[in-house]
C-alpha cells in the first residue's frame, strides 16, 4: 500500500556524490561550457544584420557549401561501402579478417595531418593514384574531389562501427523464417535485414556527416584551398582569426554549428519516424 509513496530506489549509501558532481560540473564549465558560451555570444557584437552580412559573403557561402556538400557526398559513399565492409566482416570468413577489422579504426587513430599529407602524396598528379587518374583527365588533389576523398577516409569507421554491432545481433532465425516463407535472398535482404539496420546506418551517417563538416587537418593539404572553389569553412575561420576578425570567425563557427545542428535534428527525426512506424 505504502510502497508507491517511497522513492523508486533507496538513496545510495555510496559516499562522494556531492564532491564528485561538484568537481565534474566545475571542470565541465571551465573547459567546455564557458568557451562555447564565448563562441555563441561573440557574434552578438556584430548585431543580427552584421552576422547575416558575414555569413552571406560569397566566400563564406562557397566555403559552407563545400564543407557540407563534400561531407554529404563522402558520407553517402561511406554509407554504401561502409555497409559492405560491415557486412563482410560480420557474415563472411576470409584470411586476415581480424587485421582488416582492426584497420577500420585507423582513421580514428591516425593524426589528421598525417592522413592529409599521405592522401595528397597519393593523389597529386605524380602520386601513385594521381599518375593513373591524371592522363584520364581526372584531377583529385587540389580540387573539391580531393576534399571528398579526405572525408571518405575520415568518415568510414563511423559507419562501419555503428552498423557492425547491430548486424552482429541480428537474429538469423528471422532470415530463415523469411526464406522458408518463400522470400528470395534479395527480398530477405531488402525487406528484412535492411530495415533492421537502417536506424544504425542513419546514426553512422549522422556521425560521419558531422565529423566531415568540421574536418580540417586531413582536408587542407589535399584541397588546394582556392577561395570560392576548394576552401572549406573551418579554414575560413582560421583565415579570419589570422586577420584578428574574432567576431567574423565566431560568426562562421556559429553558422557551421547551426547548420550541423539542423541536419542532425532532421536525421534524428527521420530515425524516430522510422522507429515509430
Amino acid at each position: 500500500m505504502f510502497a508507491r509513496f517511497l522513492p523508486r530506489r533507496a538513496p545510495s549509501v555510496l559516499p562522494g556524490f556531492g564532491p564528485a558532481l561538484g568537481f565534474a560540473l566545475a571542470y565541465l564549465s571551465i573547459i567546455v561550457l564557458m568557451p562555447l558560451a564565448a563562441l555563441v555570444l561573440r557574434p552578438a557584437e556584430l548585431g543580427f544584420s552584421g552576422f547575416i552580412a558575414v555569413v552571406t559573403q560569397p566566400r563564406v557561402l562557397a566555403a559552407l557549401r563545400l564543407s557540407f556538400g563534400a561531407s554529404l557526398i563522402a558520407t553517402s559513399v561511406n554509407a554504401v561501402f561502409g555497409l559492405i565492409v560491415a557486412w563482410v566482416l560480420v557474415r563472411y570468413n576470409f584470411p586476415g579478417k581480424r587485421i582488416v577489422d582492426a584497420l577500420v579504426d585507423l582513421p580514428f587513430a591516425l593524426p589528421t595531418a598525417v592522413a592529409g599529407v599521405a592522401l595528397t602524396a597519393l593523389y597529386a598528379p605524380n602520386g601513385w593514384i594521381g599518375r593513373i587518374l591524371h592522363p584520364l583527365g581526372i584531377e583529385v588533389a587540389f580540387t573539391p574531389i580531393g576534399v571528398v576523398v579526405a572525408l571518405v577516409f575520415i568518415g568510414l569507421p563511423f559507419v562501419v562501427r555503428t552498423v557492425q554491432p547491430v548486424l552482429q545481433d541480428l537474429d538469423r532465425e528471422v532470415e530463415e523464417a523469411a526464406a522458408s516463407l518463400g522470400a528470395s535472398r534479395w527480398q530477405t535482404i531488402v525487406r528484412v535485414i535492411l530495415p533492421a539496420i537502417l536506424p544504425a546506418l542513419l546514426t553512422g551517417f549522422a556521425l560521419a556527416l558531422a565529423r566531415g563538416v568540421g574536418e580540417y587537418g586531413s582536408v587542407i593539404f589535399i584541397a588546394g584551398n582556392m577561395p570560392l572553389v576548394s576552401e572549406i569553412a573551418p579554414l575560413l575561420i582560421v583565415i579570419k582569426l589570422e586577420q584578428y576578425d574574432y567576431a567574423g570567425a565566431a560568426a562562421v563557427g556559429v553558422a557551421m554549428l547551426s547548420i550541423s545542428f539542423v541536419m542532425l535534428l532532421v536525421l534524428n527525426l527521420l530515425q524516430r519516424w522510422h522507429r515509430g512506424r
Binding site: 568557451p35 568540421g214 573551418p234 570567425a249 565566431a250 550541423s260
Partner: peptide, 13 residues
C-alpha cells in the same frame, strides 16, 4: 561534435 578548429577558436575568444 564540434569542429577541431572551433575547439581552438573558443579559447582564442
Amino acid at each position: 561534435s564540434v569542429s577541431p578548429v572551433i575547439s581552438g577558436l573558443v579559447y582564442v575568444l
